[in-house]
Write a protein that binds this DNA or RNA. Structure first.
Lengths: 209, 209
DNA sequence: TAGATTGTTAATCGATTAACAATC
DNA sequence: TAGATTGTTAATCGATTAACAATC
């Protein structure tokens, strides 16, 4: 599947399509038009057809889209079928929250392990995921290919931890810290979740005159 | 301060400007040009000047911007000086992570309390923040004005909890659940952090080709 | 068949970048 | 003063929306 540059705006909408289609499929809905999908997502029908046409023609005139097969197509586009794996670096409260409540499997990832330095945590399992000592990362990686590292360490440890992950050949880093990462290898992708930026945006919105 | 519509793209960049200026101020840097600020944020100088000019002329020809005063201007634009308050709804791992590690104060909010139903949590304090019983929310709100509710409850409780917050007159909801919220009152703003959408985007990026 | 809805092309809209006079 | 850098206007670029022929 060769991808000739898809704009970030389109890519950011794909997960939303995927989620909605998953909901619809579970609700037993078989077909959907771009119009009604658009209405349920506050997007125009045009935009949805335009977005999907970046990847191929998945619909049928006069009918719309088959929910199940469109969902499967988007799953493939997003790479949900690639057997990606993840490790959590930093099993503090945030790491634990992800281990306990985030559905890695539903999002295409198999969570293999978490790593921490806290002796009270090392050796335990949280939501069936083993917590190993930080120092065991390299050895673990030699036995288990790691697609991405989830960075939930304290800010001060972020750069060093990210560098170690990159050295081990991960393809991406999911960065929950406020530390800016400068990864020299451009093939390693970084996706950040920045709580502060989000809250400041909300602050702006509620502060409008 | 009357705001004639500012585009969301601009608003989303303001927190990044603010953070960078904060870093610079702490590093003792007094002045900054749009060019060097742009370089450090991977933006063009033009864009930064264009963005800032939405709110006024904060710079000086031949000099640039004064770091401290530009930071103060942006703080005001973002509403960081308005004495906003927050409560956390749901003191599970994610709520606890925010209580322990997220710097509400640095982001313009005073965190007043957390609410939960777990008898093991109710009555305790976490990071100096009292955890109260869910049922006490209304009484608490009568005594303390709440600007925003942080929604870290399980998905199934999200809609009901959001409705209660809206009834109490909050101005915004910071939604960490995957539940789509349909708030009828358009003056109540919702900002969501969707882990799944973020991870799926990363999945796409590492799956290319 | 007739109605519905796609995929795609063209038109519009908005956001980013470039250019430059103003001026510190 | 001369060099630097702003704020703003114009030009470009990209993304969204509209329109419609194709066709299920």
């Amino acid at each position: 599947m060769k991808k000739n540059h898809i704009s970030p705006a389109v890519i950011r909408r794909l997960p939303r399509y995927y989620r909605r289609l998953t909901d619809m499929q579970q609700a037993g809905i078989e077909r959907i038009s771009s119009r009604s999908l658009g209405e349920s997502l506050d997007l125009t029908a045009s935009q949805i057809r335009q977005d999907l046409s970046c990847f191929g023609g998945f619909g049928q005139q006069g009918y719309g889209y088959n929910v199940e097969s469109l969902r499967a197509e988007i799953a493939q586009i997003l790479g949900l079928d690639r057997g990606h794996t993840a490790v959590i670096m930093g099993a503090g409260k945030l790491g634990q929250a992800l281990m306990e409540s985030f559905h890695f499997t539903l999002n295409g990832f198999r969570l293999l392990a978490a790593f921490d330095v806290d002796p009270n945590l090392v050796g335990t399992t949280i939501a069936d995921i083993p917590v190993l000592h930080n120092d065991q990362l390299e050895q673990f990686a030699a036995e288990h290919p790691i697609s991405i590292g989830v960075l939930t360490v304290p800010k001060a440890a972020a750069v060093e931890t990210a560098d170690r992950l990159v050295n081990l050949g991960v393809r991406g880093i999911w960065n929950f810290t406020t530390q800016k990462l400068s990864i020299s290898d451009p093939s390693v992708k970084v996706e950040k979740i920045h709580f502060g930026d989000s809250l400041l945006t909300l602050s702006y919105m509620i502060s409008e005159e």
